[in-house]
Amino acid sequence: MGSSPGGQLGRSDRMAVILARDGDRCVWCDRPFGRLVPPTTDHLIPRVKGGPSWLENEVAACRRCNGQRGHLGPVDWLAECERRCWAVHVTAIGAALDRLAAAIVERGGQRRARQYLQTQRRRFARRT
């Protein structure tokens, strides 16, 4: 897999970049992060679906959302979160999908992720 500008950052530094970019709340359920709800790195396009370990493919999620989401695609998990009446950060999810698409175009490669991401972006656009 390719490297990203943040590829050399340690785990806590990566999380700091993600939180500065996306805010200090879970993108899926809107719970504020703190001592009782620590942020975790959630791959927007799951690794098993070809998603790279790039900052552009990572969002901050609480453990509950990250664990319950598993390998569901972002659009399917977004629908589930809305079904549960959680305050999903739809704008942040859309921006993350766009950011990852731009990074893949810029860096190339990611054949599996590219195809999966195109499908997710189409489905996301239809639902909003």
Results as ranks from 00 to 15, higher is better:
P39K: 08
L44R: 06
C85R: 15
W54F: 10
H89G: 06
L117I: 09
R127H: 13
E80Q: 14
A125P: 11
N57G: 10
Q110P: 02
V59G: 04
C62V: 09
N57P: 11
G108E: 04
E58T: 10
A92M: 00
L100F: 14
A96E: 03
L72H: 09
I93C: 05
L55N: 09
A103H: 12
R99D: 13
G67S: 03
W77L: 06
R126I: 08
V48F: 02
P46Q: 08
A125E: 14
C65M: 10
E80M: 11
H89V: 03
I93N: 01
V59K: 04
V37A: 12
P52H: 10
E80S: 08
T91F: 01
T40M: 02
C81D: 02
A96I: 00
P52E: 08
P74S: 02
A101V: 01
L97I: 06
P52S: 12
C65I: 03
G94E: 13
R121G: 02
V105G: 07
C85H: 14
A87L: 15
R126L: 15
A61S: 13
R112M: 13
G67A: 05
C85P: 01
R122L: 10
V88E: 01
R99H: 12
L72Y: 07
T40N: 08
L72S: 11
P38C: 05
Y116Q: 07
G50T: 07
L100D: 12
A96G: 12
G70T: 11
R107A: 14
G50E: 02
V90E: 12
G109W: 00
L117T: 06
L100N: 13
E80V: 09
T119Q: 14
E58N: 03
Q120I: 06
L100I: 13
E82F: 01
P46E: 04
T40F: 04
R69P: 05
R126P: 05
R112Y: 11
A61H: 01
G73I: 05
R47E: 03
H89N: 15
R83D: 00
Q110I: 05
P52W: 09
A87F: 15
C81W: 07
G51D: 04
P38K: 09
R122Y: 00
W86F: 14
A102K: 11
R47P: 01
Q68Y: 02
R123H: 07
E82V: 04
Y116M: 00
L72K: 04
A102W: 05
L78D: 01
H89W: 06
E106D: 10
E80Y: 03
W86L: 14
T119H: 08
A60V: 04
R122V: 08
R63V: 07
